[in-house]
Amino acid sequence: MSEPIVNVQQVTKTYHQGAVDVHALQNVSLSVNAGDFAVLAGPSGSGKTTLLNMIGALDRPTRGRISIGGKDAAALKGGELARLRLHHVGFVFQAYNLIPVLTAYENAEYVLLLQGVAASERKRRVTEILSSVGLEGLEDRRPRELSGGQQQRVAVARAIVATPDLVLADEPTANLDSRSALDLIDLMKRLNRERSVTFVVSSHDARVIDRAGRVVLLEDGKIVRDERQSADDS
């Protein structure tokens, strides 16, 4: 068994909405290992996105401990958290969230620039990754010139180009048509299989859940089931 990339221990997240406390997560514990393709499943409001944000060091827990790549995320300050995200985590968002003024190539290149990767190496990696997600020939297009599926492929390319320890995808198929959604799932599965990219995906899309190697079911901010399954790779 490989070392866990993410270790979530007894994490609680409470939001204060006026006089009311909303417990988005309650004593959640979870480990994600290298090479996992895990899906956080559950109905809306079950805490999937909150847990994903915690794992991605985008949000801090009210209580508990989260270690990402061996580092205690809760103990890190703003700049250190940004560095942690930059070097260890890749994100794919439901709404693609590409930088509208940058081309597909530049969107994928952005993280490498932040990491200070040399220009020639950036070019090699971005060209290779865009080709591997099927965007060859579309490098110079801006997001508005791409379909939803193509935009989400750019987002995946951006997430994996810097070979992070793990890629977090929040409802990545929610805004895609069926064909694009299936293509995206195939792409993520292929990257998981061929490049050993670790994916944690929040989704209530059955097609994603069926293809996952591990399903973590959340209800009311608690993990009610965490089981590995033989993924349907058909």
């Binding site: 991605g56 985008l58 703003g78 700049g79 940004a82 560095r83 942690l84 995200r85 930059l86 070097h87 985590v89 994100f91 968002f93 969230n97 930088i99 509208p100 952005y110 993280v111 932040l114 951006r158």
Partner: peptide, 16 residues
């Protein structure tokens, strides 16, 4: 604001 949130999520520092 949303775009800046994404840049932060990608690892952009506040200073940047």
């Amino acid at each position: 604001t949303r775009e800046f949130g994404v840049l932060l999520a990608l690892g952009t520092s506040s200073r940047r």
